[in-house]
């Protein structure tokens, strides 16, 4: 078993070197495949991460109070809101607090707000929903309170965001599956060329009593090595790219979506396993598929 492993690896390296043209070609295509795949993976994860945080932000109803509404009146509203099943929390946000939050969200651009002479933001209630389904109803209750100037609840926006992210993720999934299949075909063609070039050798090995595994081993190892090397190369490239992107666009993303990109370390940690597993299986499947026919004839 161990001996067969060493023999297979040795033969695989010899074959890869002898057919280095083909080896490079498949390395290149699988790497390209994995790169695109990685980009879609990152897109999916980030979209779903952002969707979650958007959902979180929009599970609240902002109730803006008229300036004439007193704190006591607001307290009464809060109590009756808390009594509702769909409401998990109600918070009173003063003008001041609202301004502070606003500035924080604008980050480096927050200084722009320093020019304002008076605070234009109203006092408000922030109603956190325990159940998004009850959002519309709760919002209309809020609208009917006396002393409420405006109610902001983004039901339609949330639905839009959810629909878009759902579509994006489904599309990404389809593309990922497609790419995996293409990669398997690419490897299987490479190995098929190796197998055809080695047809006589395989036949002779069978005459001297080689088991199928003895013949299969080196080619399986070849496919898996190619898959693994591609995985390592594409991981390196993606790591560098993603870090650059987070560095350059991270702040913008925060301003635009009020959320950050998923951390590089977290992404890479997951991607390493996914890519290695994927590279190995693409390589293994590619070889097995292309060898099956030859090994079965006599």
């Amino acid at each position: 078993m161990i001996k067969n492993l060493f023999y297979s690896l040795k033969q695989a390296f010899i074959q890869m070197w002898r057919n280095r043209g083909m080896t490079l070609a498949s390395l290149f295509s699988i790497t390209a495949m994995l790169l695109i795949l990685g980009l879609f993976f990152f897109l999916t994860v980030n979209v779903s991460f952002m969707t979650e945080s958007v959902k979180e932000q929009f599970d609240t109803i902002e109730v803006f109070l008229e300036d004439s509404t007193s704190y006591e009146e607001a307290q009464t509203m809060m109590e009756s809101l808390m009594a509702l099943d769909d409401v998990s929390n109600v918070e009173y946000i003063s003008k001041k607090q609202a301004m502070a939050e606003f500035k924080e969200r604008w980050g480096e651009n927050g200084y722009l707000l320093d020019g304002l002479s008076e605070n234009p933001l109203p006092n408000s209630l922030r109603v956190t929903l325990s159940n998004l389904q009850g959002g519309e109803l709760t919002a209309s209750i809020c609208r009917n309170f006396i002393g409420v100037e405006d109610v902001r609840y983004y039901q339609t926006e949330i639905n839009k965001v959810l629909a878009i992210s759902d579509a994006l993720q489904k599309a990404a999934m389809v593309i990922i599956i497609f790419l995996v299949i293409v990669s398997v075909v690419v490897v299987s063609n490479t190995v098929k060329l190796t197998v055809m070039a080695r047809r006589d050798e395989i036949m002779i090995m069978k005459y001297v009593g080689a088991t199928n595994w003895f013949i299969r081993g080196p080619m399986l190892a070849e496919g898996m090595l190619i898959g693994m090397i591609s995985a390592v190369i594409s991981l390196g490239i993606i790591w560098a790219l993603y870090e650059k992107m987070v560095e350059m666009l991270g702040d913008q993303a925060f301003v635009l979506f009020s959320t950050t990109f998923v951390e590089t370390e977290f992404m890479m940690f997951n991607l390493v396993w996914i890519f290695l597993a994927l590279g190995l299986s693409i390589g293994a499947f590619g070889s097995i598929i292309s060898m099956r026919r030859y090994l079965n004839e006599a």
Partner: peptide
């Protein structure tokens, strides 16, 4: 079975008209 064939062939040396060398 197919798995027993390699063992069978190890007990048989084969020589052909066209040598069949690599």
């Amino acid at each position: 079975s197919n798995r027993q064939i390699p063992k069978l062939r190890r007990d048989i040396g084969m020589v052909f008209q066209d040598f069949r060398l690599l």
